[in-house]
Amino acid sequence: MSNDVAYPVFCTPDPALAVSTARRLVEFGRTEFCKVSVYAELPSVAAVRRVAKALPQAWFRGREKPEEFDVARSDARPALIFGVQGFALPADSAVYEGRLPVACELDDLPVGSIEDAFVTLIGPNAGELNWDSLSWPDAPELDFFGESKHAEVTLLLNTRTRELDEPVADHTVLVHVRSISVDGHQLREPYAHWLAQQVGLTVTGPGQR
């Protein structure tokens, strides 16, 4: 089993520029199987309802309350913990008490079908766009073979970490490669630098696992 590591290659407060920059990397490695997935953390009931109205097929999941951790029977837990699609979300605001932020997720969509609209839709809230099933080419001058399994591009929205735990007012593009670590050193980091350079970008920080 292998894992990926993602390197930041661009950061901007302009969401449109962030999306267009991420697309340059996506196009560099795009295949016919490439898909895009979206994710956001919504801090209010109003935000949840607004996004659900625009994305009724998306899945919404609320936080589990501490007293529910030991509930053995899954059917004794509220459906919102496991995920409810937007069109089926409960109307009662009390259902969301103690469950915010609510995560919103929609996976495996056609590239170009949702990116711009999603960025506008989530506004200042933390989220991400992730393009996968890409294929990075060989870099013979560096003696690196290409990459498919871990060839991805992520655009972090209003955060700079993959955990979405550091809110900021800008957006960061990440390029993913296979993680091969020896004594704490990522052997394929030069490949990430090479990929960024192919579309006029530069690695700007350490890799994120």
Rank of each mutant, 00 (worst) to 15 (best):
T120H: 13
D107Y: 09
P110I: 14
V51F: 06
F145C: 10
S44G: 00
E115M: 03
I180C: 07
D107L: 14
P15C: 13
T161S: 03
R63Q: 15
F69S: 11
L121Q: 11
H185G: 03
V45E: 06
S148Y: 04
D108T: 07
T159P: 01
N158P: 08
I81S: 02
A18K: 01
Q197F: 04
A79P: 06
P13Q: 13
R188H: 11
V102Q: 14
S20I: 09
F82E: 08
E97S: 00
L142G: 10
L109N: 01
D143G: 13
R49F: 04
G146V: 11
T21V: 08
W136A: 09
G200D: 01
G200N: 05
T161R: 11
V5H: 11
V175W: 12
T202W: 00
A6Y: 13
P140E: 00
L201N: 01
L156M: 10
D108E: 10
K65T: 15
G200K: 13
Y39W: 11
V48L: 10
F60Q: 06
L55K: 09
I180L: 09
W131R: 01
V203W: 07
G62F: 10
N125I: 07
I180T: 14
Q198E: 06
S179D: 12
P124F: 02
A22F: 01
V9M: 04
A169R: 07
G98D: 04
Q208Y: 10
D75A: 11
S20P: 01
H171C: 09
V168E: 00
R77M: 12
R160S: 12
P101T: 02
F60E: 02
L55C: 12
Y39H: 13
E97P: 00
E128P: 01
D138R: 15
E152S: 09
V182H: 07
G200T: 11
L121V: 04
W131Y: 15
G98I: 11
N130G: 10
Q208C: 06
L156G: 00
D116G: 09
S2D: 06
S20F: 13
F10R: 09
T172N: 02
L42I: 11
Q186E: 15
T31F: 05
G127S: 08
F10I: 05
R188K: 15
Q208R: 05
D165P: 02
F87G: 02
G98E: 08
A47Y: 07
V84Y: 01
R77W: 00
E147P: 06
D4F: 11
R160L: 00
V45T: 12
K149R: 10
V119P: 02
D165Q: 03
L134F: 10
P140W: 03
K53H: 15
K53W: 03
L55A: 03
E147I: 13
L156C: 02
S133Y: 14
P78C: 11
D132E: 14
E27P: 05
V5L: 14
C34L: 14
H150A: 02
L42Y: 15
